[in-house]
Each structure stands twice: as structure tokens, then as C-alpha cells.
């Protein structure tokens, strides 16, 4: 399955606000660890190895 680049979120503002709120009160190290767990959870949800590879490449390529 190719990477979805159009918006696929049913409520982007709500999901974004939840993401930020999930980090409330965490130290930087705890936030990093949370992000790592979250990436693994979402990676499993995506499933398809090629899609995940594409996402990883995109994340790396858009670094500034």
C-alpha cells in the first residue's frame, strides 16, 4: 500500500491536541520514550513493510 500523503485523519485538530496532551508533565527523556513506543504501536498498525519503509524515508528526507 503506498504512503497516504493526503489528509487521512477524521479530526486532525482533536488528534493533534491529544498527542500534545499525552506528553503533559513528562520529562524530555520520558517524552522520547513515549514517542518511541508510539512509533512502534503505529508501525504495527500500518503493518505493510514497504509502506513503513516509505514513511521512514520521508521522515528522514524532510529533516531540516
Amino acid at each position: 500500500m503506498p504512503l497516504i500523503t493526503a489528509n487521512n485523519l477524521s479530526d486532525p485538530d482533536d488528534s493533534y491536541a491529544r498527542l500534545i496532551a499525552t506528553h503533559d508533565g513528562l520529562t524530555e527523556a520520558q517524552s522520547h520514550a513515549l514517542n518511541a513506543r508510539l512509533v512502534l504501536i503505529l508501525m504495527n498498525q500500518v503493518g505493510d513493510a514497504r509502506t513503513i519503509a516509505e514513511a521512514l524515508d520521508l521522515a528522514r528526507a524532510t529533516a531540516r
Binding site: I4, T5, A6, N7, L9, P12, D13, L58, T62
Partner: peptide, 9 residues
Amino acid sequence: ETQPFARAM
């Protein structure tokens, strides 16, 4: 800048 999905956020 390149990904339409992120513009929604």
C-alpha cells in the same frame, strides 16, 4: 511543505 496531510494539522 511537501506533504498535504500535514497541512491539515
